[in-house]
């Protein structure tokens, strides 16, 4: 049992050790090869890192609870894009223009509602048809992307609103708006997963769905709530990001699902469900962003980042397998 616990510690703490190693490595390596004369661990640099982590991070946090359920959501990138289109486009609707700055919270509301609705569609299909979430969201990834193109063809949707930009670029206690949203999401979801009935049921369902059903947990609606949650978070991520940038391309958000899943898996959540944590995912998100920045810092091409992250993901999987092995007595199947 002691052995089991130490393995657990490695699993949960691993991502933070990895982040530490990244910090040390890039600080030392940066000393020799840095393309800028700024230190890697510069506070401003680190704060920026948090901000840059936010868009994928917020989605990845939502993906964690989906994956704890034993599901997956491949449509988050498309939800992200459509919510962004709704956000920016709604600001140009005549009645919204007439509202002046009061239109802004309304626009946010429309965008978030879009996300929740799309999530609800996914959740409802998973619940009512019993099709695997992988297939459902794979299909809606295409379908939702179609909706994005329907809106404005292949043209970008733009609407730079300076009030929004000011809001997005504001800093409170040194942290950007986006960072606060990321932190807020972490706190809320940490609370939900560790302290509430819904969160504990999420683990129970992922762990042993049959048992959860027998215990009277309504699995279908539970799934639907979680898909609505990740839809909301994908929209929130879009709101945070596009308030600042003010222009969305119909292809934006592509591959976000893959980045989010990568962060979640790096953070120790099991693909099979029933195991994982919000804090771990935060670690995964930070580790990826640190890697991007660090490789940039030592002058590596951006393309190297893809290569390294891909290989690290596989390495993590390999290590996890080694840790869960029973040793030589294991059945060789």
């Amino acid at each position: 049992m002691a052995m089991h616990n130490s393995k657990d510690m490695i699993k949960q703490g691993g991502i933070w050790v990895f982040i530490l190693a990244e910090l040390v490595f890039f600080s030392i390596a940066g000393h020799y090869w840095s393309v800028s004369n700024q230190a890697f661990m510069d506070p401003g640099n680190m704060l920026l890192l948090l901000k840059q982590s936010a868009p994928i991070g917020i989605i990845a946090l939502g993906m964690t609870i989906i994956m704890i359920n034993g599901n997956i959501d491949l449509s988050v990138g498309a939800i992200f894009a459509l919510s962004a289109v709704v956000l920016l486009d709604s600001l140009s609707w005549p009645f919204m223009v007439a509202l002046g700055d009061w239109a802004l919270p309304l626009a946010w509301g429309f965008a978030l509602l879009t996300g929740v609705t799309l999530g609800a569609i996914n959740g409802l299909i998973v619940w009512k048809t019993g099709i695997d979430a992988f297939i459902v969201t794979l299909a809606s990834m295409l379908g939702f992307r179609g909706l994005v193109f329907m809106y404005n063809g292949e043209q970008p949707t733009s609407n730079l609103n300076w009030t929004l930009v000011d809001f997005a670029e504001a800093q409170v206690l040194g942290l950007h708006t986006a960072s606060w949203f990321l932190i807020g999401t972490v706190v809320v979801l940490w609370f939900v997963t560790t302290r509430t009935n819904h969160g504990r049921n999420a683990y129970a369902i992922g762990n042993n769905r049959e048992a959860a059903v027998n215990a009277g947990i309504r699995v279908g609606p539970h799934f639907m709530w979680n898909f609505m949650l990740i839809g909301f978070l994908a929209a929130l991520s879009a709101v945070v990001f596009y308030s600042e940038s003010g222009s969305v391309n119909p292809n934006d958000g592509m591959l976000y699902e893959l980045w989010a899943i990568t962060a979640v898996v790096l953070g120790g959540t099991k693909l099979a469900g029933g195991y994982g944590s919000i804090i771990g995912t935060l670690g995964g998100v930070i580790a990826i962003q640190l890697l991007r920045k660090g490789l940039g810092h030592i002058g590596a091409d951006t393309q190297t980042v893809n290569l390294v992250i891909g290989l690290i993901l596989i390495a993590v999987l390999f290590l996890d397998r080694q840790l869960t092995r029973k040793g030589k007595e294991e059945l060789k199947i």
Binding site: R195, T196, N197, H198, R200, N201, Y203, A204, N207, N208, E210, A211, A212, N214, A215, G216, I217, G274, Y275
Partner: peptide
């Protein structure tokens, strides 16, 4: 029919955890 990652208490009261406000 137990959830191995959860505690004994959570398993015993699976589906009927005692709650406070806000689903805590």
């Amino acid at each position: 029919s137990l959830a191995g990652e959860l505690s004994v208490a959570e398993n015993i009261f699976l589906g009927e955890l005692p709650l406070k406000s806000f689903g805590r």
